[in-house]
C-alpha cells in the first residue's frame, strides 16, 4: 500500500508524538524523526515506526515525526491513526 495523501495524528504535548505521513515519489519508506530523546532512543523509535508501517502493508511513504517523549504504545497508536486517515 502506498501513501497517497498527507495525513497526521498525535500532538506536540508531552508523552505524545506528532506523526505526518506523505506520499514518497521515491517509492520507499523514509522516516524523519525529531525527538527530545533522539540520541538515547532514536534508533528504537524509528524501528517501532517502521515495523508499524510495514505491519499495515505500507511500502512507500515519507514519515515525518516530532516526538515529545512518547512511549512505544503511543508511537504505534499514532502511526496507526495516521494510516487510518488515509482510508
Amino acid at each position: 500500500m502506498n501513501i497517497t495523501q498527507t495525513t497526521q495524528a498525535g500532538t506536540l504535548e508531552s508523552n505524545d508524538i506528532l506523526v505526518t505521513l506523505k506520499p514518497n515519489p521515491e517509492g520507499t519508506i523514509e522516516i524523519h524523526l525529531q525527538s527530545v530523546v533522539l540520541k538515547q532512543f532514536g534508533k528504537q523509535i524509528k524501528a517501532i515506526i517502521l515495523s508499524t508501517l510495514q505491519n499495515h502493508g505500507i511500502t512507500s511513504c515519507l514519515c515525518e515525526c516530532e516526538d515529545k517523549g512518547a512511549l512505544d504504545h503511543v508511537i504505534i497508536a499514532r502511526v496507526e491513526s495516521a494510516i487510518q486517515r488515509q482510508l
Binding site: 498525535g10 504504545h73 503511543v74 497508536a77 499514532r78 491513526s81 487510518q84
Partner: peptide
C-alpha cells in the same frame, strides 16, 4: 474520536 480510541486500546 477514532485516534483517541486507538490510543486508549493500545494504552
Amino acid at each position: 474520536k477514532i485516534s483517541a480510541r486507538t490510543l486508549l486500546q493500545h494504552s
